[in-house]
Computed example of a mutant assay.
Amino acid sequence: MEVKENKIDIGGKTVYYLSYERGNMRNFILLHDSKQRSDSWAKIDALRKIGQWGFNVYAPDLPGFGNSEQNEKYNFGSSPSKGASFIKDFAEKLYLSSLNIVGPSVSAGVALKSVIDSPELTNSAIIIGGLGVDHILNELNKIEKPVLILWGTRDNIVPIDHGQKYHDLIASSIFVRIDGTGHCIQLEKPDIFFNNVKKFINNL
């Protein structure tokens, strides 16, 4: 089984995504930050590795990034709500439910807002050095689904105390500090990232 490249139409625009499908009902969606795209996950073999735990795995280029066309409706940079709307439409287009959404950096707000807005579609959220969360701070206490918060102790983009704040506001969250890593734990120390995610998922 191989990772596949795909293109679909969402909201009248082309969306490119990578997929590793096992044909079951459990799904991961891997988001990227504002400086990367879906292939950042392919470089660490994330789709296949997570897929082999028994999941279908999808890594879209968010609208306006990589090979996906710009669509103002989903401009997540201006609003986590718009990003969450894209996740919902992407999931419905592919008939996906039971979503575990990984949101690094600026996509963290999208992942958390998706859990808030679409609890019927989502199973959990995993955020890494979360940016874009301050817009929805007053909504974090609504989250009841499990959330894993990963933060590098050497993150010089977003201080680690932000992660502690989010953990305090989300009763269902787990906060893990990763020693010696910066803002992009998944790229800097992928083995540690995978181990933490697998432990989290196995305990759900």
Rank of each mutant, 00 (worst) to 15 (best):
R26E: 14
W53P: 09
N6Q: 05
G109A: 08
P146F: 07
F194R: 04
L137M: 14
A91M: 07
F193P: 04
N71D: 11
S40N: 07
K7T: 15
K49R: 15
F65E: 01
N27D: 13
N123S: 13
K113P: 11
G12Q: 04
Q164M: 14
W151P: 11
E5K: 14
E72K: 13
K49F: 09
D117Q: 09
I170Y: 06
F55V: 07
D161R: 14
Y95S: 14
K93D: 05
W53G: 10
S81G: 00
N6P: 03
G83Q: 02
D179T: 11
H167R: 13
S85L: 14
I201L: 13
F28H: 10
D155E: 07
N75M: 08
Q70P: 11
W41E: 04
A91G: 12
A91E: 05
E139L: 13
Y58G: 01
G132H: 05
N56Y: 09
L140D: 04
G77R: 10
L150G: 11
N138P: 11
L187G: 05
G66P: 02
N71R: 10
L131N: 12
A108F: 03
F193R: 07
P119Q: 02
C184Y: 04
A91H: 09
S98L: 12
T14A: 00
V57D: 01
E139H: 06
V197Q: 03
Y58F: 14
N24D: 10
N24C: 11
K43I: 03
G129W: 01
K73C: 04
N56I: 12
S38W: 03
F86D: 00
I128D: 01
I128S: 01
E139G: 02
Q36G: 11
Y20H: 10
V57W: 03
S68D: 02
N141K: 15
F193W: 10
I101L: 00
I10R: 02
I149R: 07
L204E: 07
K49W: 09
F90K: 02
S97F: 08
Y95E: 10
S68A: 07
F90C: 03
L140I: 09
Q164S: 15
Q164L: 14
Y166E: 06
I127C: 07
R154E: 11
E120V: 10
S107A: 14
A84I: 02
L148K: 15
A108D: 04
Y20I: 12
P190L: 05
D89V: 13
N202T: 09
T181C: 04
K13I: 12
S172G: 02
